[in-house]
Design a protein around this nucleic acid. Sequence first.
DNA 1: TATGATTTTGTAATCGGTTACACATCATGA
DNA 2: TCATGATGTGTAACCGATTACAAAATCATA
Lengths: 325, 325
Amino acid sequence: MATIKEVAKLAGVSVATVSRVINNKGYVGVDSRKKVEHAIEQLDFSPNEVARSLFQKKSKLIGLLLPDIANPFFPLLAKGAEDAVSQLGYSLILGNVQDDVTKEEEYLKIFEQNNIAGVLSAVQGSSKRTKTTPLVTLDRVESSEQFAVHTDDYQGGMMAAQAIAERTPNQVVIMVGPKEIPSSFERLAGSIRVLKENNIPYSLLQTKSFRLEDTDAAAQLFFKDYATADSVIASNDVYGLALMREALKRGIDIPNELQIIGYDDMPFSSLLFPGLSTIAQPAYEIGYKGAELLCKCIENKPVTEKRIQLPVKLILRESLREKVL
Amino acid sequence: MATIKEVAKLAGVSVATVSRVINNKGYVGVDSRKKVEHAIEQLDFSPNEVARSLFQKKSKLIGLLLPDIANPFFPLLAKGAEDAVSQLGYSLILGNVQDDVTKEEEYLKIFEQNNIAGVLSAVQGSSKRTKTTPLVTLDRVESSEQFAVHTDDYQGGMMAAQAIAERTPNQVVIMVGPKEIPSSFERLAGSIRVLKENNIPYSLLQTKSFRLEDTDAAAQLFFKDYATADSVIASNDVYGLALMREALKRGIDIPNELQIIGYDDMPFSSLLFPGLSTIAQPAYEIGYKGAELLCKCIENKPVTEKRIQLPVKLILRESLREKVL
DNA sequence: TATGATTTTGTAATCGGTTACACATCATGA
DNA sequence: TCATGATGTGTAACCGATTACAAAATCATA
């Protein structure tokens, strides 16, 4: 790879002039510029970002912290972030935290050692562990966090319950996501409010995590403890799917004997039959908007909205009964 | 963030001595070492990787090129790569190529500008576009590629067909993956061989891509053109799923009227009912082994296997009929 | 033509590490 | 006792960019 020195030599100017050309900054005479551009072309030169980063104390890299990339919600978010970031001239360093605070701290250190420009985190509580770098929190947002992109979980919870309420539920079970995750609370509160308003009896089933491995056990538990329930609001689509599968295995008719609504609208939810009704979270947009917001912070551009809230949407598929008017 | 100079000053030694301590390289007296370690502790110092990378002309970053991170096969691969890489002291820069050669080239340039240590690529043909950096190709491997981790597609194709052959197929349709992807060929060849050996008639249905968006159209096409087929070997699980969904919608009984086998064993394939039978590709291991191999190359360690082939496995679920002995 | 402002250019310091090299100290064996 | 090699340490160059600063060239204007 050619260096700025070689370009300077070939063009017959100093490195400062070359630098001025490539950064389009400061005075450069027309013929100097031409000579430099020609030399750059000839040598196929592109500036070493490492050297730049060392001097600027800031790289063009953004750290992306994900709780678990194998959870199908996050690849979509990552894709959104990646699209935005690369358009704005940055790249992503991937940090898959695997719900492990130690790993998260390791990553934050690595990010710092690499002069990261900012952090995009879908991991809960990252704001407590970052000091100086700009941080945008995604999805699982706490109220203390300054810059964030999230959805209205309360409303999402309400929408899910409303969809159930309109479909003659007999006994409803709400699966409650992990206690540590604030969005679980919100959703639960929203759902409960709607069910109470409609005088619909409900039970709560606590789930351990959002991990794939725990869903089967939860589904089994549901059919053991709530065999008579005819409606369920699942923690997310993965749980919804696990329930559906177990139900179909047991020959339970969906949606007539059991209707299910999930949360997230994961890509596969539309690929099933019966399709899983769900509250769609715009994962891609969360990532995309988050990245845009972060880049604004990094570049000290004016930020109109520090906390962006994106709408959720009810997606009706075959796992819910017909609406009763 | 503290620098090596500050550490040296606090410890009362030169920067060279500090460098020797942190790299555990060269002679250092016992009390010097102690003083340095103490100073490092006090200042919570960790070396700036950017400065290191500049001098070494080689960073601790590895570029990961993926065709499409939203395709559920790749997050698992990425997770495997990430696990291995982080254990070995490296980090991943994410490059989501979106099946676009221009984007791939952009990424390779960015990687180079960042003194990347090596490239891990699941994108086809990357070897033609990288010159000097170590490269390990994953999954979609061409015969010309030096370092690679892949599975035996021919055998996978055979296994899929064998599973069908043993289950009294009447008319078989093989969905053929995109022409440009060598593994499609291999699988097809394997499947055809088995079907021919068993004198089972088959038809081919060409599919456009491995993208989520194209699956629906393919499923519709299948039922339009091959209404009488009772067995199908799908390009992958996403296609398999699309077929299954369309079949269930049309009230076709699975597996009795139509049996389906997929390819990949994506996480959701086990979450359905009927579950999708499939040929499992060890996506996580591909990523993991690939990263290990790459790191060996980077560090000039002896490599016993330049091209690693991992076994595929038949996963039987409800989408296939009972085996006839 | 002299003056000052503007434009153009280059030199050298800097970012934070690594390491070649020189030099000093020390122990060992002839 | 002295040569020898091993050990310990510091100085300074270097990696490839950016930029402060100084100096030179050009231009406009009085």
